[in-house]
Amino acid sequence: MKVLIADDDSIVRRSLARALSRQSFHVVEACDGEEALKFWKESNFNAVILDVLMPKLNGIEVFENRPRSSQAKVVFISAFSGDEVSEETVGQMGDLFIKKPFENIFNVIEQIEKIL
């Protein structure tokens, strides 16, 4: 299984990557929206995890420009501060929406595994 993680906050990205790796996922990391879109176009993923607020392209924009052929499940993560986009919009777009802060990383991984 191949997963793309896009989050500009390295510690969030690293912790998700580590948690997924120990469940034997193959993880690719992107640190902004542009990089995420580039990786997404280059290879096939089973799942793509997108932070909503990212530099260059935000999570929504990456989602809207995703390769047509992509079969990947899309997971949005965000710590909404009330502006930009509403929780509902994002909830309807992806397959899963996870709100930050996480209480427990293992629960998060479980949720992701469930949709795959």
Partner: peptide
């Protein structure tokens, strides 16, 4: 306060997740 809280939540989430992982592994 809202903005500051938001900014703090991100790294805190990372720290917490990381410590949970390290505790296990």
């Amino acid at each position: 306060a809202g903005n500051v809280a938001h900014e703090l939540n991100n790294p805190l989430t990372g720290i917490r997740s990381m410590s949970q992982l390290l505790r296990k592994d």
